[in-house]
Measured scan of single mutants.
Amino acid sequence: RTVKALYDYKAKRSDELSFCRGALIHNVSKEPGGWWKGDYGTRIQQYFPSNYVEDI
């Protein structure tokens, strides 16, 4: 599953992803609480806010 970032996001913790608008995040798994995990660049299975992305 791949999603596309709608907005920039700067990680606030070491287990979160930072990305820019338009970024493609791969291998996404839905987690409870509005935070999902995914791969972006060299960061593997890190958290990001689900309301910052859309399915593609």
Rank of each mutant, 00 (worst) to 15 (best):
E54G: 08
Q46P: 01
F48T: 00
A11W: 00
K4D: 02
S18A: 02
G22D: 09
K37F: 06
Q45G: 08
V53A: 05
S50W: 06
I44V: 14
K4L: 10
L24W: 06
G34E: 12
E16D: 02
V3M: 13
E31P: 07
V28G: 03
C20R: 15
Q45C: 07
F19D: 03
E54H: 08
A11Y: 03
W35I: 04
A23F: 07
D15G: 13
K10M: 06
V53G: 01
C20V: 14
W35T: 08
K30E: 13
L17V: 06
P32L: 13
R43W: 10
K37R: 12
L17R: 00
G41V: 01
G33H: 08
N27I: 03
W36T: 01
Q46C: 10
I44T: 15
C20M: 12
S14K: 10
G38D: 03
I25L: 06
L6R: 10
Y7T: 08
R43K: 13
E16T: 05
Y9C: 15
Q45N: 08
T2W: 01
L24A: 03
Y47L: 13
R13F: 13
L17I: 10
D55Q: 08
T2E: 08
Y47T: 11
Y52C: 12
T2Y: 10
E31H: 08
Y52P: 01
D15A: 10
G34I: 11
G33C: 11
D8H: 09
I44K: 13
W35K: 04
T42V: 10
G34P: 14
E54T: 08
T2R: 06
S18F: 01
S50I: 08
S18W: 01
G38R: 00
K37L: 08
Y40I: 15
L6F: 05
A5K: 00
L6V: 06
L6E: 04
G22M: 05
L6A: 09
P32F: 08
D8N: 12
V53Q: 03
R21A: 11
F19W: 02
G34W: 05
R1S: 13
W35F: 14
Y7F: 15
Y40N: 08
Y47H: 05
Y7I: 10
W35R: 15
K12R: 12
C20W: 05
V3I: 03
G22W: 02
V28L: 00
Y40E: 06
N51R: 12
K37V: 09
Y47P: 01
D15W: 07
S50R: 14
Y40S: 08
K12A: 10
Y7Q: 15
E54Q: 06
V53I: 04
G33R: 05
G33T: 05
D8S: 12
F19A: 03
S14R: 14
E16R: 05
K10C: 13
V28T: 05
D8V: 00
W35L: 12
Q45E: 02
K10G: 06
Y52H: 09
Y9M: 00
Y47D: 03
V53D: 02
N51H: 15
A5C: 08
G38S: 00
V3C: 08
R13T: 06
S14M: 14
G34A: 12
S50D: 05
A5Q: 02
S50Q: 06
R13E: 07
N51P: 05
K30F: 09
L24E: 12
S18V: 01
A23I: 04
R1C: 05
W36Q: 02
D8C: 11
I44S: 05
G33K: 02
E54K: 14
L17E: 02
D8P: 10
G34M: 11
S50F: 10
D15S: 14
L24T: 09
T2K: 09
V28N: 03
E31L: 13
G38A: 02
Y40K: 15
T42A: 12
K4M: 11
L24I: 11
P32H: 07
K12F: 04
T42I: 13
C20Q: 11
L24K: 09
I44C: 12
E54Y: 06
G41K: 13
D15T: 15
T2P: 04
S50E: 12
N51S: 15
G38K: 00
H26W: 12
V28W: 02
Q46W: 06
Y40C: 12
F48A: 00
T42Q: 08
I25S: 00
S50H: 10
K10A: 07
K37H: 07
D55E: 15
R13W: 02
T42L: 10
G22R: 02
E31G: 15
D39F: 05
P32V: 07
Y9D: 02
N51K: 12
S18T: 10
W36Y: 06
K10Y: 11
D15Y: 08
K12P: 01
Q45A: 07
A5N: 00
A23D: 15
V53M: 03
V28I: 06
Y40Q: 07
N51Y: 10
C20N: 13
E31I: 10
G22H: 03
R21G: 07
G34K: 14
C20I: 09
L17F: 05
T42N: 15
R1V: 15
W35S: 08
W36D: 04
F48K: 02
D55A: 11
D55I: 06
R43Y: 09
H26V: 13
D8M: 04
T2M: 09
D8A: 15
P32T: 10
A5D: 01
Q46H: 14
Y52D: 00
Y47S: 07
A5H: 00
D39V: 01
V53L: 01
K10Q: 13
Y47E: 03
T2V: 14
T2F: 03
L17H: 04
T2I: 11
Y9R: 03
A23V: 07
Y40D: 03
G34N: 15
W36G: 04
F19E: 03
D15I: 13
G34V: 13
N27Q: 11
V28D: 02
Y7D: 08
I25T: 01
W36S: 15
D55N: 13
K10T: 13
K30M: 12
W36P: 05
C20S: 14
E16V: 04
Y52S: 07
S14N: 07
P32I: 15
R43L: 11
N27S: 05
G22C: 02
G41E: 11
E31V: 11
T2D: 06
K37Q: 06
Y9K: 02
G34Q: 12
L24C: 13
P32M: 15
G22L: 00
K30V: 13
V28C: 04
D8F: 06
Y40W: 03
K12E: 09
D55V: 09
L17S: 04
S14G: 13
G41F: 05
A11N: 06
N51C: 15
D55P: 13
L24H: 07
C20F: 10
Y47Q: 10
E16G: 06
D55K: 10
L6C: 06
E54D: 07
H26R: 10
L17K: 01
Y7H: 13
T42R: 14
C20Y: 08
G33F: 09
I44R: 13
